[in-house]
Design a protein around this nucleic acid. Structure first.
Lengths: 148, 148
DNA sequence: CCGCAAATGCAACCCTGTTGCAAACAGGTT
DNA sequence: AACCTGTTTGCAACAGGGTTGCATTTGCGG
């Protein structure tokens, strides 16, 4: 009987007012150990390798949904259109700023110094996130940029 | 015998050095009539409604691939991770302004009124285009977004 | 200890995008 | 005009990500 277990993940779940369940604890553990955003299948693999064995695909989706909904995780789309999940604590270190995409080398650079404008939206719209993508040619590629 | 047909889309295809085929003409026509980027299934629907009837799903994908490859269309990912296609001529009119991506329906709206900040770049970098993507919930989806 | 809502697990499904292959076609050649 | 060849089309089947329905289990407050 774990009355108030010392588990920090359980505490996070309680603080977020969601039930403390084994699948949620397992997912939270993997997510907060990760250094980058993981796809559903990457999470599934890592969970399967754990001593507790596989976690149902659908359950994993639903656990992720609940974690996103209660703010403990974030969901983003990667360049292939696949969802990636990130624990919010990890995300906090990588906040909202502009990115530069070099059209020549494909590299992505963070533009920490560029200020993010306030979204000016039509009535009824609500913004959750503003992404700025500047496309052009980076310093390394500038000398070569004659050929498109 | 269409030596040089008056069809402007055929001319575009010839200029791009790809064969002039009925499916390509049909897709180009729909794309250049569109005011926003369309998904594959939206295109499929619009084509099915035309007098020429349905166009094969796979053919549509391949036609879009060829149009993207020859530069007559552009492909982007929407907020749901679904490809959207835009004729390049439409894209030209849509250059530097912000877009709103609804996270619920995936729709993309132009935010004409939102000013685009000047890119503040490190030395050596040059910007060609600044994309602003505001993510959130659009007016149509707002009423539904509580019951996530 | 009970009860109930929430969460889990399983099976089946949908949708987007791809691959393989035979038949049809575009467009230059004779 | 008929021919030839590489491209394109259409069909069927597949793959992977993500979702839905439903019966069973479980967290947790009473």
């Amino acid at each position: 009987m774990p009355e108030i277990s010392p588990d920090p993940f359980a505490a996070q779940l309680r603080a977020a007012a969601v039930k403390v369940t084994r699948p949620r604890l397992r997912v939270l553990a993997v997510l907060s150990r990760a250094t980058a955003a993981l796809t559903h299948s990457e999470l599934e693999e890592q969970l399967a390798d754990s001593p507790q064995g596989i976690l149902d695909r659908v359950t994993l989706y639903r656990v992720l949904d609940s974690l996103v909904e209660c703010g403990l995780a974030q969901r983003t789309l990667d360049a292939r259109g696949v969802y990636r999940f990130l624990s919010s604590s990890v995300q906090a270190r990588h906040a909202a700023h502009a990115h530069f995409h070099c059209q020549r080398c494909g590299g992505i650079t963070c533009l920490e110094q560029m200020e993010v404008p306030v979204a000016d939206l039509p009535a009824g719209y609500s913004a959750r996130q503003v992404d700025i993508e500047v496309r052009g040619v980076c310093a390394a590629c500038a000398p070569l940029s004659g050929a498109a």
